[in-house]
Amino acid sequence: MDKAPDTSAIGDFLRSRRSRIQPDEVGLPGHGRRRVPGLRREEVAQLAGVSVDYYIRLEQGRGTSVSDAVLDAVARVLRLDDTEQEYLRSVARPAETRRKTAARPAGQRVRPGLKLLLATIEKAPAFVLGRRMDVLAWNALGDALVGFSAMTEKDRNMPRQVFLNPAARDLYPEWPAVAAETVAYLRLDAGRHPKDPRLATLVGALSLASEDFRRLWADHQVKEKTHGAKRLLHPLVGELALPYETLTVSGEPDQALVVYTPEPGSTTEERLRMLGSWALT
Rank of each mutant, 00 (worst) to 15 (best):
Q221H: 14
V249L: 05
L188K: 09
H193M: 08
L208C: 12
A190F: 00
L236T: 14
A209D: 00
A256N: 10
H220G: 07
A256D: 14
H220D: 09
T246W: 02
Q255E: 08
D219T: 03
D189Y: 06
E224D: 15
R231N: 06
D189C: 00
L202G: 05
R198Q: 12
L216D: 10
P197M: 12
R187D: 08
D219C: 01
K230Y: 07
A218G: 09
S250D: 14
G228H: 07
A241L: 12
G238W: 04
F213M: 02
T226N: 13
E224P: 11
P197L: 06
L199Q: 14
G251Y: 12
P235M: 01
L216T: 12
D219N: 08
Q221G: 08
H234Y: 03
E239N: 10
E252S: 15
L232W: 06
G228N: 09
K225V: 01
D189I: 00
V258M: 07
D189G: 11
D196I: 03
L202E: 11
L257K: 01
V249F: 09
V249P: 08
V183W: 00
L206I: 03
T248K: 04
L257M: 05
A184I: 02
A190C: 10
A200L: 12
A200I: 02
P253G: 08
S210Y: 05
K225Q: 10
D219F: 03
H220Q: 15
D196E: 06
L186H: 11
P253C: 08
T248S: 08
D196L: 01
L216H: 06
S207M: 03
A241Q: 13
K230C: 03
D254T: 13
A190D: 07
V249S: 07
A241P: 04
G238Y: 04
Y185T: 12
H234M: 03
A184P: 04
R187N: 11
R215L: 07
H193R: 14
L257T: 00
G251L: 13
Q221R: 13
E211G: 07
S250C: 10
H234D: 04
A209G: 00
D219L: 02
